[in-house]
């Protein structure tokens, strides 16, 4: 039982990270109607930025995370402007191939700059964790969970209460109509990419503090799993991303513990295929009828 609880808590930890990344996928998908393949690699950009800031420039950890968030937001906006914006009205195949190209570009640039070797991230948070009965909850897990919940609430308030957030909803509903209502579509899309990438930076920091080691390809598989979480929760839905992320993290951790470490990836991918077969709109997604 104790082991099960420990695994469950580990699952919540990794699940929260997936949830934060899945938010970026879901928001971009909702507004730009594209699968931003490079989103996973933004986590890597964030993690390396924080790594350089902390270990080479000796910046205090919280400031380093802030730098990481800013750098990632800038990356997200610039990538959108250079690579995705010119292709906005073309086929989804074209945009997707470009996004894969961007993902590869980020990975290989970082491979050239930092090398293939894994880097070990210095401890960002100094928090010992708590004991609940006989089960220890690591400090990283508590911080990860707390950060995710706070971000989720803040994001929901932002989208539903502020003008910019409502503009995002409007653009995702109907781009043309939103433009006619005087919403600056370009700025709204940029803002979405900035927020999504900033969340990816936070996820990168939490990932690095939980797993210590970072490497140039760390974002690729994490990103794909987060996308699966977004699909599982229902793409375009913010509570769905949170829910999907947590479910996926728990399933992955439990299958690692009780079935096989190697097979756990196959199980996660199997879930994606099952969800798409049985309920393509995800667990919390709304069904949309395709119009000609």
């Amino acid at each position: 039982m104790e082991n099960f609880l420990t695994q469950l808590i580990g699952g919540l930890n990794v699940g929260s990270i997936y949830a934060l990344i899945a938010l970026g996928y879901t928001m971009v998908y909702g507004i730009a109607k594209m699968l931003n393949f490079a989103h996973g690699d933004i986590i890597m950009v964030g993690a390396y930025t924080i790594f350089v800031a902390v270990s080479s420039a000796h910046v205090p950890p919280y400031l380093a995370i802030l730098i990481g968030i800013i750098v990632c937001a800038v990356f997200g906006v610039v990538i959108e402007k250079i690579a995705y914006k010119p292709l906005r009205n073309t086929s989804s195949l074209t945009v997707l191939i470009t996004a894969i190209g961007v993902s590869y570009l980020l990975q290989n640039l970082s491979l050239l700059i930092f090398g293939e070797q894994e880097k070990s991230m210095p401890a960002l948070f100094h928090f010992d964790g708590l004991m609940f009965g006989s089960v220890r909850v690591p400090g990283e897990t508590i911080i990860t969970l707390a950060a995710t919940v706070v971000i989720m609430i803040a994001l929901t308030l932002f989208i539903n209460k502020t003008k910019a957030g409502k503009a995002m909803l409007a653009v995702s509903e109907d781009k043309g109509a939103a433009e006619l209502m005087g919403i600056n579509v370009n700025r709204t899309i940029s803002l979405t990419f900035a927020i999504g990438s900033a969340l990816a930076a936070v996820a990168g920091a939490l990932y690095a503090s939980s797993y210590v080691y970072i490497k140039p390809t760390m974002g690729a598989m994490t990103g794909i799993k987060a996308f699966i979480a977004a699909v599982l929760g229902g793409i375009g839905s913010i509570p769905g991303a949170m829910f999907g992320g947590l479910v996926l993290g728990i399933v992955e951790n439990l299958s690692k513990a009780y079935i096989s470490t190697q097979i756990s990836d196959a199980i996660v991918f199997g879930i994606l295929i099952l969800v798409l077969l049985i309920r393509p709109t995800g667990l919390l997604g709304k069904k949309r009828i395709e119009k000609v």
């Binding site: 690579a83 292709l87 191939i97 190209g101 590869y104 570009l105 990975q107 640039l109 491979l111 050239l112």
Partner: peptide
């Protein structure tokens, strides 16, 4: 690999 990624983006 770097060249591949640039090929993908540039061609598109």
């Amino acid at each position: 690999m770097l060249a591949y990624s640039i090929v993908l983006i540039a061609m598109m």
